[in-house]
Computed example of a mutant assay.
Amino acid sequence: MIRKRSLMHRTAVVAAAGAAALVLAACGGSGDDDGSAGHGGHAAPASSSAPSSASPSASASASASASASQGQHNAADVAFAKGMIPHHRQAVEMADLAPGRARSAEVKQLAADIKKAQDPEIRTLSGWLTSWGEDVPAEGAMDHSTHGMDGMDGMDGMMTAEEMTGLENASGKAFDTAFTELMIKHHEGAVEMARTEQADGTYGPAKKMAAEIIDSQSAEIEQMNALLGKD
């Protein structure tokens, strides 16, 4: 009986020791797991949250800066748009006369190129003025409509009503010569207006258009001077 009790006591002690060992092992394992999970759980969000909180702010700031730069304009930009719209419209009106009056195929092609280039620019310039809360020059605002605007007087090359009437009444070689001479003067005025915009304007797209006008119309002036030299 004593032996049986002794055996049962030893068995209980062993069982208790084993249970204690299992508890310690479980606690140790749980601590390791919690440490890993805790490190990963805290470190990962920390590393990902820092960029995510800074990144939207940085990108928003960069976007706002870009928008401010893109949208900035001044009085020179407005004057450029308001002056160039009627200027381009008159060039297109002159170009529209060429198909039925010009004799030279080169003059006809030049007129077509001028209309193709300047029609879209009129729409772009009008869009800028609308977005700035400015009035778009009314159709037919040509001749002297831009004279006296922000120093443009005498340098815009716009045709007078008499010159336009003379061009409308010409045909054949007389039209070719008149069209070429008047368009050279017209282009020279546009180039000067574009140079003023480049010097005084602040709106990036307008300054870019001004550079394109200088390049394209200077090339056409050379082409027209060559045409006059052939006659």
Rank of each mutant, 00 (worst) to 15 (best):
A79R: 01
R101N: 11
A81V: 05
A161V: 15
A112R: 01
A26C: 06
D119N: 05
G166Y: 00
V191E: 01
K116S: 15
A178F: 03
Q223T: 12
E163V: 03
Q90F: 10
L97Q: 10
S145L: 00
G166M: 02
A211F: 06
T124M: 15
D176M: 03
D119L: 07
G18Y: 01
A117H: 10
M159E: 04
A64E: 11
A17Q: 02
A102T: 01
A54F: 14
A25H: 06
V14N: 09
T11S: 14
A190I: 05
H186W: 00
E192Q: 15
G41V: 06
E181D: 13
V92T: 09
P137Q: 06
L97D: 04
M94K: 03
S61I: 03
S47G: 09
D156L: 11
E106Q: 12
H144R: 11
D77T: 11
M164F: 15
L7K: 10
A15S: 08
G133F: 05
A20V: 12
N74P: 01
H73C: 03
A178E: 09
D156G: 01
G172P: 05
A178Q: 15
A76S: 14
M8P: 01
A178H: 04
P86K: 03
Q109F: 00
G148I: 09
G204D: 09
Q217T: 11
S59W: 07
G140K: 13
G154T: 06
M8H: 08
S47H: 14
D200C: 03
A44W: 13
P137T: 00
L22Y: 11
E181P: 01
L182N: 08
L125I: 10
M149C: 08
K108G: 12
M155Y: 08
Q90W: 08
T160F: 08
A206M: 07
M159K: 06
V14Y: 01
A112N: 05
A19F: 13
K207W: 07
A66G: 04
G71P: 01
S49L: 13
R103T: 07
P99D: 12
I213C: 07
D153K: 11
T146L: 04
A37T: 08
S55P: 02
